[in-house]
């Protein structure tokens, strides 16, 4: 048990607020079309942070994708012309710019516990009416993709798998068959989650304590500074 716990501990602990700052900073900077060296720096930093938070495989996958896109861009972009360019451009260059944003999103959602979220939002002085929905939301996003995969598998077993064909020929039916189970499971899980959190005293009026050590460390300040700098300078460079 202790071994499992130790394996889960991040090597470099970063605060949820820092992860937010990174998500926004990287987002703003990427959409401003930064010069290549800045893009590469951001990417390397995000890959490192993911790896240091025990997401080595995710980090490796993104790195491979980044290099494939980079090679394609360098090898092909000068030779193609015409309508193909538009598709190519949106797939390779825009896709590559999106990678760090996805990575920041994964870092935020997959390496932060609900209690860390709650405490961090609390420290940001957000009202209670917002901290609970937002914390639940960020934890729920991975759950939904899991649910979605099981629903899709269940549909395939019954021979009503969702495909381009089914979307085009029977759009409303496909919509009904996918959304109803999704809504149903969301409602059920939400109810269960509510019961679980209420029994642990989520709606008491006293100040909550947290087992996690939530505070801003020096690495947090550095990363927040980095986010602010890339957000501000992304467009100007």
């Amino acid at each position: 048990m202790q071994l499992i716990e130790a394996a889960r501990q991040p090597i470099l602990r970063i605060d949820a607020r820092t992860k937010f700052a990174l998500l926004f900073g990287v987002g703003i900077s990427s959409l401003m079309f930064p010069p290549f060296w800045l893009e590469a720096t951001t990417f390397v930093l995000m890959a490192l942070l993911l790896a240091l938070n025990r997401r080595v495989r995710t980090s490796a996958k993104f790195t491979v994708a980044f290099f494939i896109m980079l090679l394609l861009d360098w090898a092909v972009s000068l030779k193609v012309s015409g309508g193909f360019v538009a598709l190519f451009f949106s797939l390779v260059r825009l896709g590559r710019l999106m990678l760090p944003i996805f990575m920041a999103g994964i870092l935020l959602m997959k390496t932060t516990s609900v209690s860390e979220f709650m405490l961090s939002f609390d420290r940001m002085h957000l009202p209670n009416k917002l901290t609970i929905p937002l914390s639940v939301m960020f934890r729920f996003i991975p759950t939904i993709s899991e649910e979605w995969h099981s629903i899709r598998d269940a549909m395939r077993f019954r021979g009503i798998g969702i495909s381009v064909h089914s979307v085009l020929t029977k759009p409303m039916m496909t919509l009904e068959y996918t959304m109803v189970p999704l809504l149903m499971s969301t409602a059920t899980i939400a109810d269960e989650l509510a019961a679980a959190s209420l029994s642990r005293g989520l709606d008491t009026d006293t100040k909550r304590t947290c087992i996690e050590d939530v505070r801003l460390r020096s690495q947090d300040y550095l990363l927040i500074l980095f986010s602010i700098i890339i957000a501000l300078t992304g467009g100007m460079l």
Partner: peptide
């Protein structure tokens, strides 16, 4: 008035909406 339970439901549906 919104209760804690409603806030949790809100978070779950917001997640579904955004995904």
């Amino acid at each position: 008035k919104l209760k804690t339970k409603d806030l949790i439901v809100a978070g779950a549906f917001a997640a579904l909406y955004v995904v």
